[in-house]
Amino acid sequence: MKLRKMVLTAIMVFWACQTVSAASKQSEFALFKRSINPDYNWGENGVITVPKAMPAGKGNIYLAGSAQDSGTVEGDRIFLTSVTGVVGTSDDVEFGYTRRQFIWDNLDRTDLSMDTYSFKARIFHMTDSIIPQIALGMNAVSLNDNEFDRQEDILFNPYLAVTMRVPLFTEKAVLSATAVAESIYNEGETSDLYFSAGADLKLFDMLYLMAEVQGMGKEDEDQVVNLGAKVKMGWVSLGVAVYNCIQEDVSTGDPGFSDDSSDVRAYALVEIPLGKMFSKSENKTDTN
């Protein structure tokens, strides 16, 4: 109960006492975002759906996947899965590819699939801590049958992410706060700006707690709150996230957890820190 209270209190900070109305543009945008986003390395290069300014890192590779129960079709269960592969091509640049796919419970594919290509470049990085880092990124999805042949068929999602990393007296407990401004673009048209924020707490390089709010700064529209947790063991991480889990109680007006609107996704990640290993190896060689 204490944990629940703490979480709710934290969320209230993000909630910022905004008035709530169902199905606002923000919740639409939040669903849109989690439909096109890559699976981030939670707590590292992204919070959950909110990208962080930190890239994957030179030579580092990760493969992340998530799955959401989508129900049954004629007695067979079906899952919405996504698999993301990200490669850090330099200290500040990463490229990613995400495949979204509905699969049956026997792992057969359905015909429902979608690709996302993503790119992120850190443009400001003075130190790893305290001083905010800034990155520009872009996701690209197809508007036409998952085809990327023509530019007019591609919807771009550019964003600017600012992340501040704050060690809590030790590197074993690190709090990061991220703010993101983003838009979408197609054929010379851009959308309004959307603002999101997220925070993650890394403890002992093993446990990650994440919370993010999508749809900041719109007085007349509600925000969408996503919560997640991840456990990292070596190169493998497992996690779970709950999306759009806070709704205003109709009678009291107070925010609270809600199953009515929320979606749950399981998450797994395998990271191959080639870059880090190379770096350690080189450092070791240098030391020697």
Partner: peptide, 10 residues
């Protein structure tokens, strides 16, 4: 991972 998404389509 790819095998998860590369099985024959139902």
């Amino acid at each position: 991972a790819l095998s998860l998404v590369a099985c024959d389509k139902r």
